[in-house]
Amino acid sequence: MSTLHTVNKSPFERSNLQACLGHAQNGDSVLLIEDAVFAAIAGNTFAPKLADAAQDIKLFVLGPDLKARGMDPAKVVDGVNIIDYEGFVDLAAASSTIHSWL
């Protein structure tokens, strides 16, 4: 079974996302929540790393956190799926372990 990794900080402030991507296994899911959602917007300098990761890892971003911060869902990096809290719960239930990178 796979792991759901959650990350809640911008990669411009903390190394959580970098650390998470460095440890996630093929087939795992990574969900960006809270201040990590900024990483998912195309054009930021971290976005190419996400696009790279999307080849082996399933990437998600929490829609309500995007919306709260005025981030345009249309500008989310290709390969990153927008989900709501229901989708978050589904991901958590479908993964055997949840690793919150703090």
Binding site: T3, Q25, D28, T97, H99
Partner: peptide, 17 residues
Amino acid sequence: RAEMGKLMAEMDVVLTA
């Protein structure tokens, strides 16, 4: 790091702070 990633994947419960 690669071994750490594999080890983490074997866990049932991961607690972080």
